[in-house]
Amino acid sequence: MKPLRWGILGAANFARKHMGPAIHAAKGAELAALATSSPQKAAGFEAFAPGIRVHDSYDALLADPAIDAVYIPLPNHLHVEWSLKALAAGKHVLCEKPMTLQADEFDQLIAARDASGKLAAEAYMIVHHPQFIRTRELVQGGAIGKLVHVDATFSFFNDDANNIRNKPEAGGGGLRDIGVYTFGSARFVTGQEPVAIPYAKLRMDNDVDVFAQVSADFADFTYTATVSMRMFPRQEITFHGDKGVLKLTCPFNANDFDAATLTLETEGQTVTTERWPGVNQYVLQVENFCNAVQTGAAYPCPLEFSRGTQQMIDMVFAAGGQRA
């Protein structure tokens, strides 16, 4: 089976450091092209992917008949526009999160995906990591008894006014940048959706959210989260049942922030620890995408799932008195 030939729209640092190398390393994939007008930025990709074709515009890359799929790491406010253009050009699309700025924007992406017959998905890598697949298996399998409460935290410090995360016109803010992980991970593991957001305290700076404290009600459990771009780096998610507690201490940036580790404590003070050293969730994401295109297998993170996470973000903005 021929590899899926990939192009990248834009020479973003994240693409150069993580997704470009992941596409280059993934089975069933070939990193074939890059769109950038900067020779200096292109050199960073040529260092690990010699021979990569460099187009001087996004449109030129989309017009390249030798490209099957595109990865889009552009600023948030450009995601919908270029995802739609890529689908119209007959390319499969993997777009960075958040793929949209509001949940209803997913509807046109879903319609375009269905009309094109191509795969389109948000680059939500954590659901491809075995620690989350294992967590879902344990929680839904009753390893901690009846789930009562989920608590999630994700924070880092970034007050650089020139960074796109701090620019409202680029769709910046903590909830869109990392709230997708605290919210989407709970949805993925439990298979449930929030029914209400009884409390959301947001702190804004230059019209972007830099701190959010959230409580949510799901059908069978309660949920709390802290998301911040102005706190010391921390990430953790805990699933607390009536028969045990399951904790992930590096759920989102596995083997970058720390080692991917799952700890399960059950009755009788029995503690089980599982670790996944060396697993690259970005490579797994690309391989699952390629496999879905090449074999028709179900993709672990369809647009409908991503729409649900964005819907929860919209609910939090509304509960916090802010427009999404």
Rank of each mutant, 00 (worst) to 15 (best):
D220K: 05
F106H: 15
A292D: 00
N206Q: 11
L94C: 05
I178M: 14
E137D: 07
G244A: 05
K97S: 14
K41A: 13
Q235F: 05
G51S: 04
P277V: 04
T190G: 01
F48M: 09
G90C: 02
A88H: 08
F305I: 10
N158D: 02
F154S: 11
P39Q: 11
D56L: 01
N166R: 09
F289C: 08
Q140L: 06
R136T: 05
A254V: 12
P3N: 03
G278Q: 10
E267F: 00
I52N: 04
P39C: 07
R165G: 15
M125K: 12
Q281A: 13
E265F: 06
S228D: 00
A29N: 02
Q40T: 15
T263H: 05
L62H: 00
K17F: 02
N253W: 15
S83R: 01
D242R: 13
D160W: 07
M315K: 11
I8W: 03
F132M: 10
D159N: 13
Y282Q: 12
Y124I: 06
Q310I: 12
T135L: 09
T153K: 15
L78P: 08
Q213S: 11
A26N: 01
I126G: 03
H18A: 14
L119P: 06
V227Q: 01
H24N: 04
Q131T: 13
A170G: 02
N280Y: 08
R187D: 10
E105Y: 13
F45S: 09
V283I: 13
D64Q: 05
L94K: 05
T266Q: 10
D104Q: 15
I313P: 07
E265C: 10
F252P: 02
R113F: 12
A115C: 08
I133V: 14
T135P: 05
G308S: 11
I52W: 01
A170C: 07
H129S: 00
V286W: 04
A161V: 14
Q294L: 13
N162H: 15
E122A: 15
K118H: 14
H77S: 14
P194I: 08
T261S: 08
A86H: 09
N280I: 12
G321T: 12
T190W: 02
A260Q: 04
Q108W: 13
I178Y: 05
G296E: 07
L31F: 06
R230H: 08
N255I: 03
G7T: 00
L303I: 02
T263M: 03
D56G: 06
G7C: 01
H18C: 14
V286Q: 03
K85R: 15
H79S: 07
L62N: 01
R234K: 14
V286F: 04
E105A: 13
V70T: 04
T224Q: 05
A120V: 13
E46N: 09
T190Q: 00
P198C: 02
K27T: 05
T100A: 08
P130R: 04
Q131L: 15
M231E: 14
R113M: 14
F48W: 08
F239S: 01
T135E: 06
S38W: 14
T182R: 04
D314E: 15
